[in-house]
Design a protein around this nucleic acid. Sequence first.
DNA 1: CATAGATCCTGTATGC
DNA 2: TGCATACAGGATCTAT
Length: 305
Amino acid sequence: MPELPEVEVVRRGLDTWVRSRTIRDVEVLHSRAVRRHEAGSTDFSARIVGRTVAGASRRGKYLWLPLTEPGKADHVAGSAIVGHLGMSGQLLIEPEEAPDERHLRVRFRFDDAGPELRFVDQRTFGGLAVADLLDDGAGGLVPSPVAHIARDPLDPGFEDAVFVSRVRAKDSGIKRVLLDQTVASGVGNIYADEALWRARIHGERPSSRLTSPQVNELLAHVRDVMEAALAQGGTSFDALYVNVNGQSGYFDRSLAAYGQEGLPCPRCGTPIRRVAFMNRSSYFCPQCQRPPRGRAPQGRPAAER
DNA sequence: CATAGATCCTGTATGC
DNA sequence: TGCATACAGGATCTAT
């Protein structure tokens, strides 16, 4: 599953279903699912078995389950199970007797009579690892693989002014910058296109030439569209994108631009266009979102470097 | 250093 | 029907 709203739906499910439960057994069925755990799948399991999940956290599209010290259920120790769903990952809560999914990669069983947790991932771009928790510099903790990821726009610690100046300092198109998880996290292809449509900004516009008010307004649209999607349980076009109980969200009904090629722009009626972008697609209204004149952003002159 | 492109996978939809 | 191609909610590595 993909962008912030869908990942947050999963986080909430995990917090409900696995918080305070102790893991009895870990089964890695496909080593690629733990490839980011450098010490290998045996070590991955060994660091988890016998420990208790303290809750479920998220930054951008990353999720993690902080683990408590064995025998000290209230004290958060220095490690967590970190996960990224990639393009097709799912975290599912299932009865132990439920048949294995075709793309089941990792199974977690608990020491109670409750359901198990499964990581299912068709394309294997997602993955899990056990990592140390680090001080995030603001009284919080983040796992080491998440340290390079910026806060997301729904995080209370997100600093709007820093975001605006970073966006304006970039020498790239605004859509690429929105997708840069070190500038702001959580935004992916759907919500980038939707926020740009709401802001009436073409994704190829050079980010450095947007004014501060324009960037602030775009940020407000990013927040609005992700919050609206979250309220609908996220966006789901098919069974690949589901919450921990296998249910789909229905924000796809509210999309104005993404995936709407040829359909009328909800604002002006002009057919939505699709163009190739970074090995996938961008959707926009050619009337509401005027492409920049000339072309892609210019590099600074050589003499200036 | 910062940016753009290729790459890792499996499945579905579409066209010839 | 069979086969080829295009495309999919992402991050990371590599080349420039």
